[in-house]
């Protein structure tokens, strides 16, 4: 599978997906008006990866801002990862938030309560 490597912009995050390393990374800002356009290829990639994932997939989500349009797409990403986890492959989601950003921590906890995959909340010191 071809990896995905996208540079971040003012409204969209940087993305690194590698099937060879089992690494899924989304970082930066995710505030496009229409997030489906941006996330559809990522969700499709994960659907393909699901067919033959590595034994262990590490997911790093480090967002500075995300809008409610993105929040649904991020849930779609997590649902694909949940399916991989259900298939007896290890998946671990690392959710990063800055130390004073309670809203971002809460957002991570919202996903954690919906998705049956182990989450680790990682505080980043300012």
């Amino acid at each position: 599978m071809e990896p995905i490597s996208i540079e971040g912009t003012a409204k969209t995050p940087s993305v690194q997906f590698s099937s060879k390393e089992g690494i899924i990374e989304i970082k930066g800002r995710s505030i496009p008006e229409n997030s489906v356009e941006f996330y559809k290829p990522l969700v499709d990639w994960l659907e393909q990866y699901k067919a033959s994932p590595l034994d262990k997939t590490k997911v790093n989500i480090q967002l500075e801002y995300f809008n409610t349009s993105s929040s649904k797409c991020i849930l779609d990403v997590f649902k694909k990862l949940e399916a991989i986890h259900k298939g007896k492959n290890e998946v671990e989601i690392y959710w990063y938030y800055e130390e004073d950003d309670e809203d971002m921590l809460e957002a991570g906890e919202d996903y954690e309560s919906i998705i049956r995959v182990p989450f680790k909340m990682i505080e980043i010191a300012d």
Binding site: N34, S35, E37, T68, S69, K72, C73, L75, D110, I114
Partner: peptide, 14 residues
Amino acid sequence: LNHQKLSEKGGGGL
């Protein structure tokens, strides 16, 4: 978040 689909325009009612 868990039950409603995004509209065509990308709004989610959230």
